[in-house]
Design a protein around this nucleic acid. Structure first.
Length: 882
DNA sequence: TATTTCACG
DNA sequence: ACGTACGTGAAATAC
């Protein structure tokens, strides 16, 4: 078999990878993007070229013989950024685990080592590939050596062997050295012949082949070229010498030392885990070569549940059961269940069909038997239409993983969790169903394949949960998990299932009204612009405003002119079209996102809207809402607020809407322990007026509305870690004034300053921020050497405990409200949460009781030094509750 | 698929 | 000196 040697230019590839990939870091704050890019590239090369031998060459820091030859060699090169430098050693350690030979030699560059080793390979009849991002290495291409140059970052390579070089450039590879001698190289600071560039260089070499020959025949040249060459003979020769990769460096290397493939995959996996490269582990396991102790096949016994009674008995003894319910896609209220899979140990897997659900209904609703699973909320919702309540949902691995790492790079896909915790490769949903438009549905998959997929999930749950539980205990998040997040699964499931009633007729009316206004505005805008265009296109709008109408450019985006609301506000005096556009934008937004968006998504069966509430999205602990997003329904403008009129209570019901007053500032007051702010809340003072009176040193009775507005901006700004500059922009005041305001704020609320400093300090030390209930957010940014990123990390550290604690508190309130309504066997339902607001659809007979429950549970969700204050309103529509 | 804009707390 | 407020999701256009 032909032997294949691959030599990688380590510095070149890690450099390319660093600049091509976005910032990444592991949980220790180590930057990993360049290592990741390097490995991904290396894997691709190994797969494509199947090397028998490999080596990676690195530059040494010390000056090389070229520096001695020419003092200015590579002068003016920027220093390697620290974010890249810190990744070099870890990469080398990783290569050692791969048992891939590394070469470096004092006084020589990686190129020279590569040239020398390539030559050695050629002499021994190897097929040689050189991998680099540097075109200089094209000079090494030959009939036996192919140079692979990365393009598009590090995703692809271009092949250069002798023939393809000659074909492309009409030059031999070695003539590239002469070419560089003539034209020089800016990046290496090789001078070349002044005034000779690529075109002239190629022309000369076509005629004279080499610099030496060219110099011998200068008399044949004409005009300025003749002069240039004659005057710079020495410079040309020296440049050529500098550009020549030498192929006989004194390095002691034998080809048998370069053999590739004998390594221990377990060791490599260890490293990958350290770097957080979950996705690469799975690729590694697929690759040829290497040894591993990881067992690929797990023997699952999948069988129909014939004896439900016996299984239930065993489940009772066991105390828990692992479950996964598989349904067809469809309307939330009647997604048909295909199968329910159950297991006690994750190895013996049982299933029942839809028509046998009743045989296990008792098991599912039995509160004494804990349910473990993957995405239990989905299972809960699927079972609801069958009248089966999935009780005692106790361990959901997606929720646990979210707490363990709220911005886990691996996502919460089960296959990723299996890889991360078990180093076990199982099919992902995408592997099973395909992706994009061609993706299949569960009911289009053969049962054997489907059951194997589900079996893997149950098996993963069985093996992962003890590890996750341990991790949750270790990080003191087990309380948060078992008492807040897991109970919340049912709450959110119930909210989705219940939904919120929408008055479709009103929505239709709004659509008509908005469409009329939009058409009118559109015509007026076209008239003012002098031509029709797409107003929704920022690009076309930019051309009209800034080129045709000649308005001044206020701000640019990376693709063109900015036309956002802030920019338009600054231009409104300059042209009457601006106000029309602002109004047009506003109404189009309301119409397309809300009116049309909501119409599309009303459930035909219930006439209600069933948003999805996601518990594993945000980095801070908040929940998010999709399809539709019920958390950004307009409220700030009168016209927008009209949208809320369509959200109504069902017949015989009222909407009870309760929101926390200043919950984040109260959290801040409590967590910081600042007496002054705590006092303000204790006395029921208006916190913004109080702050204004403090900053501006006036009596609280004499605070002007302008002062209050400014104080409000400062109060909120503080929560986000706002700077004096930002505040000055917002309030349109000079920076020093803003600075004085902030200083004065911290003087009056000294413990808040201490709290912020302490938050940053502790996050810097531990790498994470924590909330009242011990929720964690990892902040690798806080260790960045880049000032901008590091400052951003500090703001995360200041904001996460506040926003996160507020999220903790309302989650507790939700669980308690839900449970109280349930305990009292009330028909009233919690249907919505908007970060600091809860909405209950209360049947009229229960109204008073529901109001009392909501208020009490919200007020008492968390004991703090400041009490939680709740504003509660009841009405027939969401609009009326404000 | 990425970018821009804008709705909310 | 650097850039400058946290957390989301949806729609539309342009590539």
């Amino acid at each position: 078999m032909e032997k294949t040697l691959i030599i990688i230019d380590g510095n070149s590839i890690i450099n390319r990878a660093f600049y091509a990939l976005p910032d990444m870091s592991n949980s220790d704050g180590l930057k990993t993007n360049a290592i990741f890019g390097f490995v991904r590239m290396m894997f691709k090369i190994i797969e494509d070229y199947k090397p028998t031998h490999m080596s990676v060459a690195f530059d040494k820091k010390a000056p090389t013989f070229r520096h001695k030859q020419y003092a200015d060699y590579k002068a003016g090169r920027k220093k390697m950024p620290d974010e890249l430098g810190q990744q070099l050693e870890p990469l080398k350690e990783l290569l050692d685990k791969f048992n891939i030979n590394r070469l470096e030699l004092e006084g020589y560059e990686a190129d020279d080592i590569i040239g020398t080793v390539a030559k050695l390979g050629e002499e021994n009849d190897f097929k040689v590939y050189i991998v680099t991002g540097d075109k200089d290495a094209i000079q090494l291409a030959s009939h036996k050596t192919t140079t692979l140059i990365t393009k598009k970052g590090v995703g692809e390579v271009e092949e250069y062997d002798y023939d393809s070089v000659v074909e492309r450039y009409e030059m031999t590879p070695t003539q590239f050295i002469d070419l560089k001698g003539l034209m020089g190289d800016k990046s290496d600071n090789i001078p070349g012949v002044p005034g000779v560039g690529e075109k002239t260089g190629i022309k000369l070499l076509k005629e004279y082949s080499t610099i030496e020959n060219l110099i011998e025949h200068t008399e044949e040249l004409k005009g300025s070229i003749k002069k240039k060459i004659e005057e710079n003979k020495e410079l040309a020769l020296m440049s050529k010498e500098l550009a020549t990769i030498i192929r006989n460096v004194p390095i002691d290397v034998k080809l048998e030392d370069l053999e590739y493939g004998d390594y221990n995959k377990d060791d490599v996996i260890e490293k990958f885990k350290e770097f957080g490269f979950t996705s690469l582990i799975s690729k590694l396991l697929d690759m040829d070569g290497g040894e591993t102790t990881i067992k690929e096949e797990i023997n699952l016994k999948i069988q129909h549940l014939d004896d439900a009674e016996n299984f239930i008995k065993k489940a009772e003894e066991n105390g828990h059961v692992i479950i996964d319910v598989i349904g067809k896609e469809g309307n939330i209220l009647d997604k048909k269940i295909l199968y329910v899979f159950l297991s006690l140990d994750g190895e013996e897997i049982y299933y029942v069909n839809e028509d046998e659900l009743q045989t296990i209904a008792g098991l599912l609703s039995n509160s004494e038997i804990k349910k473990y699973g993957y995405d239990l909320k989905e299972d809960y919702i699927l079972l609801k239409p069958y009248g089966i309540e999935l009780n005692s949902m106790n361990f959901d691995i997606t929720i646990a993983e979210y707490l363990i790492d709220s911005k886990s790079s691996t996502s919460y896909e089960c296959s990723a969790i299996a890889m991360k915790y078990l180093t076990r490769k199982i099919k992902s949903k995408e592997d099973l169903l395909g992706k994009g438009a061609k993706a299949k549905k569960f009911d289009q998959i053969e049962f054997d394949e489907l059951s194997a997929y589900i079996g893997d999930i149950l098996n993963t749950v069985a093996d992962v949960y003890p590890k996750m539980e341990e991790k949750l205990k270790e990080t003191e998040m087990d309380g948060l998990f078992y008492h807040v997040e897991m109970p919340l699964v049912e709450v959110l499931g119930s909210m989705e299932y219940t939904g919120m009633k929408v008055d479709k007729d009103q929505l239709d009316e709004l659509k008509e009204k908005f469409t009329t206004i939009i058409n009118k505005l559109e015509n007026e805008i076209f008239e003012l612009a002098g031509e029709p265009f797409n107003i929704n296109s920022p690009k076309q709008l930019g051309v009209i405003l800034f080129e045709k109408l000649g308005l001044p450019v206020v701000k640019k985006t990376k693709t063109g002119y900015s036309t956002n609301a802030e920019v338009l506000e600054k231009l409104r005096d300059k042209h009457e079209i601006i106000d029309k556009i602002t109004e047009y934008r506003q109404i189009v937004k309301l119409n397309s996102t809300y009116v049309e968006g909501l119409l599309k998504i009303i459930n035909p069966k219930t006439g209600r809207i069933h948003s999805s509430f996601n518990q594993t999205i945000t980095t801070t602990g908040r929940i998010s809402s999709t399809e539709p997003n019920m958390q950004n329904i307009p409220v700030k403008t009168e016209m927008g607020r009209d949208i809320r009129k369509v959200f109504v209570a069902d017949n015989g019901c009222k909407l009870v809407d309760a929101d926390y007053s200043q919950v984040e500032l109260r959290v801040l007051a409590h967590m910081s322990g600042d007496e002054n702010m705590i006092d303000a809340f204790k006395h029921g003072e208006d916190i913004h007026s109080k702050t204004a009176s403090q900053i501006f040193d006036v009596d609280i009775k004499d605070v002007t509305s302008k002062q209050r507005i400014e104080a409000k901006a400062i109060n909120f700004g503080i929560i986000y870690g706002k700077t004096d500059f930002g505040l000055s922009q917002d309030l349109n005041i000079p920076v020093p004034t803003a600075k004085a305001y902030i200083e004065s704020y911290f003087n009056k609320y000294p413990k808040i300053k201490e709290f912020m400093d302490e938050a940053v300090e502790s996050a810097t030390e531990t790498g994470y921020a924590t909330t009242i209930l011990n929720r964690r957010r990892y902040i690798p940014e806080i260790k960045a050497s880049n000032f901008i990123v590091r400052n951003q990390g500090k703001r995360f550290a200041m904001n996460a405990p506040i926003q996160g604690s507020a999220a903790d508190i309302i989650k507790v309130a939700m669980v308690n409200v839900y449970n109280k309504l349930k305990e009292n066997e009330m028909k009233s339902k919690l249907i919505l949460q908007v970060h600091d607001e809860l909405i209950v659809e209360a049947v009229e007979e229960e109204l008073e009781m529901a109001e009392k429950i909501v208020r009490e549970e919200m007020e008492n969700a968390q004991a703090m030094d400041v009490k939680l204050d709740v504003d509660l309103n009841t009405g027939d529509s969401w609009y009326e509750t404000k």
